[in-house]
């Protein structure tokens, strides 16, 4: 009886440890899979313009069919990259950055931008930006991650025009 209790306690204790480790690992594993698969399929430090989400879309869970997404899988291990995009008018637009643990560490939307075009430098948090001049710097807590450009399809008759604008977004080594 005592032996059974000791074995049961040991099994349960180990199960709890495995559970906790797995819970901590899940975001890294899922994000790592996205970074790896999307990077292999579409390239790294370059923008991929996804098609409008429908029932066949399987790359990312719970996509919005009202938005069109452009994605840049980034790898800053070789140095900073630049992100640039024109801002479409009269619709929702945002640029967001996610680290390799799913954290949304940066986001900016069209309402917060007064110009018709944005440009950023995305760099590791150890990056020393030039003292004067240059684009604003976004510091990433991890070397790899994802930048997502979201554009709202404000109306169906504007789809092609908005699609053309979002396809001008760029992501490239500095």
């Amino acid at each position: 009886m005592r032996k059974t209790l000791v074995w049961s306690a040991a099994v349960l204790s180990l199960a709890v440890i495995i559970h906790i480790i797995a819970i901590f690992a899940v975001p890294n594993v899922i994000m790592g899979t996205l970074i790896s698969r999307a990077g292999e399929a579409n390239g790294v430090n370059t923008v991929f313009h996804g098609k409008r989400a429908d029932a066949t879309s399987r790359q990312i869970v719970r996509p919005s069919p009202d938005l069109i997404y452009s994605m840049c899988v980034f790898d800053l291990s070789e140095g900073p990259i630049t992100l640039a995009a024109p801002i479409p008018t009269d619709t929702y637009w945002s640029l967001s950055a996610f680290d390799d643990n799913t954290n949304n560490f940066f986001v900016v939307n069209a309402r917060q931008i007064t110009t018709d075009h944005v440009e950023f430098v995305l760099a590791r948090d150890s990056y020393q930006a030039p003292a004067v001049g240059g684009a604003p710097v976004i510091l990433s807590p991890t070397a790899t991650g994802v930048v997502l450009f979201r554009t709202l399809i404000q109306s169906e008759d504007r789809f092609e025009a908005l699609d053309d604008v979002r396809k001008k977004a760029t992501c490239a080594p500095l």
């Binding site: 899940v26 967001s96 799913t102 949304n104 986001v107």
Partner: peptide, 17 residues
């Protein structure tokens, strides 16, 4: 919460947005 987001809402924006 982070694990649920990874499984059910990957690339979700933060509350500010």
């Amino acid at each position: 919460t982070r694990a649920i987001v990874a499984r059910r809402g990957l690339l979700a924006l933060n509350k500010r947005e």
